[in-house]
Simulated scan of single mutants.
Amino acid sequence: MAHGHEVPVRSKKQEAKAASDCRSVSKMKFSLSLLCLLPSTSAFILPQAEKVSTTSLWGRKPFISGNWKLNPQTRDEAVKLAADIAATVTPESPDADVALFVPYVFIEAAQKSAGDRLFVGAEGVCPEIKGAFTGAVSATMLKSLGVQWALAGHSERRVIFGESDEYINGQCLKLIEQGMSVMLCIGESEAEYEQNLAGPVCAVQLRKGLAGITAEQMSRVAIAYEPVWAIGTGKVATPEIAQSVHATCRGILRDMYGDAIADQTRILYGGSVTPESVDGLMAQPDIDGALVGGASLDAAKFGRIINFQTA
């Protein structure tokens, strides 16, 4: 008769299970040892491309802007429209920047009419400062009028006037060189959108348009995402679609410049924005404003857009 505790005899099946359990424990210990070597809990942070930002979190000031294009037809009309729009900016309005991008010939009149309630900017600029460029307007000319903002890369300039990414980049660089600010417009055509190319198209236009612009200079840059298929067509990307592309664009900026610049750069939505659609768009975390076309020619409509509501 054996003394003490008897050692139970295990079957082969039990032996195999025990060996498997031992290996599992060993793997767990090894994994825990690797985690101990990590400098922080960064292993549990989502990849940068999946980070979600919000206007309130990053402190991006909303930017509501209007693009008059080839409108209105007279100086008197421009003066009245600028005054009527400026009157809609009140102490009760959202804390946002407001700008009107107007034809060159109306800039000074619109500035005087609007006063200090909003910025009056230019619809474009020549990347040259002086020389034999008939019909062109330089950054220094605009600066001498007190202009702080100008558009670059609007789809109509790209498509109708044939402005290339390189030309648009020259505009951006020249404006920044003069201590001014630029709103770089990007966006895909309807055919490109239907082929799921919105991201790649925006990536190319962003990378080429911002070439040579440093992280420090990005404080003078705003981005306007305008799906070409929604400009002047009455079609508006749903807030969810717009938010998705804006998040993609912010991810591209993150890859180009890092977290801080990506999180501080304002990305506006443009494309048939109306009083009815603005609230839903502005409620999205990566939509920081609007670049408005047709509705900016109606003071009441644009005033409602300026006074958007997100709650």
Rank of each mutant, 00 (worst) to 15 (best):
T238F: 05
G271V: 15
V245D: 07
A262G: 14
A222C: 11
P239N: 08
K235L: 12
V273M: 02
A222Q: 10
D259H: 12
G271T: 13
D255P: 03
E276M: 10
V221A: 01
A262T: 11
E226G: 07
P227H: 03
A247D: 09
Y257G: 12
A260T: 14
M218N: 10
V245W: 07
A230C: 15
M256Y: 09
H246K: 11
T248I: 10
L268K: 01
V236E: 05
L253A: 04
H246D: 11
G251T: 04
S219F: 11
S272L: 05
M218T: 06
L253D: 08
V245N: 05
R266M: 03
G271S: 15
A247M: 09
T233F: 10
R266C: 12
G270I: 02
I267G: 10
M256C: 10
V221K: 05
I252N: 02
R254D: 12
A222V: 15
G234P: 03
A230P: 03
Y225G: 05
A262R: 06
A224G: 00
E240L: 14
A230E: 02
R266P: 06
H246S: 13
I231C: 04
T274M: 11
D255G: 13
Y225K: 10
V273R: 00
T265N: 13
D259E: 14
A230T: 14
T274I: 12
W229F: 07
D263M: 13
R254I: 07
A242M: 04
I241V: 15
I223C: 01
Y257S: 10
P239Y: 01
V228E: 00
T274N: 11
V236F: 03
L268G: 10
V221R: 01
I223R: 01
A262I: 09
I252C: 07
A260M: 10
D259L: 13
G270K: 00
M218H: 07
T274R: 14
V228L: 06
V221L: 05
Y225M: 04
Q264G: 14
G234D: 08
K235V: 07
T238P: 11
T265Y: 11
H246L: 07
V228R: 04
T265M: 08
E240N: 14
I241H: 15
R254P: 09
D255F: 05
I241K: 15
D263Q: 15
I267N: 13
L253S: 04
Q264D: 08
Y257W: 11
S219K: 15
L253M: 14
D263A: 14
Y225L: 10
E240F: 14
C249G: 04
A260K: 13
P275D: 09
M256N: 09
G234Y: 01
Q243C: 06
W229I: 08
V228W: 00
I261R: 10
K235I: 05
R250G: 09
M218L: 14
R220Y: 13
Y225P: 04
I231Y: 01
T265H: 09
